[in-house]
Amino acid sequence: MKTVFVHPEKCIGCRHCEIACAVEHSRSKDIFGLVTESPPPMPRIHVEVGVDLLTFPNRCRHCDPAPCMQVCPTGALYRDKDTWSVLVDYEKCIACAMCAMVCPFDIISFHRVWNVTFDHEVNAKCDHCIERQMRGEIPACVEACKTGALEFGDANDIIRNSRRDFTLRTTMALKGEAAPELPESISQFREVMKKVTKLGPLG
């Protein structure tokens, strides 16, 4: 099962993923469409600030079983068997927000979209970039992420790599060798900004 895996320690809050997502879900698929199209294309991934100015790119996890699918009264939510994605049939969505109420990640929000007959707000959540996947491309957010915070692949493969990395660092540490998970100056920067949050409204 392929998924967009998040390495939160590598998210630096640039919001490239949000822009790429909005472009991918626009009518024109063009960045300039973001300012000219109506309805305005909206991102389906959300980078928000938590503690110490750290960020987390939050998006649909395409759960299985998916609570949103289970509670949808109109059957608007369904699963694509090829990509195992949870998708929304905009024509059936009545914007009742039941799905949003049960979503464990609170990533469902309601927006107008260009590709629906009756112009109303619908559950405009991540569709796993299914059109891109059909073409053999990776989701737009992952393509846009230049820090490696978002990675697309088989979850077990990604976890295995992370585990190897962990083992490498742990064994290096046992030998007394420095094995930082992050580059030194990046850790220093985060320490500095953590202090800044203690001194003002960003805390």
Binding site: I12, G13, E48, V49, T147, F189
Partner: peptide
Amino acid sequence: PQCGFGQLGLCCNRCAMGPCRISPF
């Protein structure tokens, strides 16, 4: 959140081959 590339000095928006950014990792 404010863009990490900008805060880290890793965003270059000077020319039309860009904008470019370097991964901090």
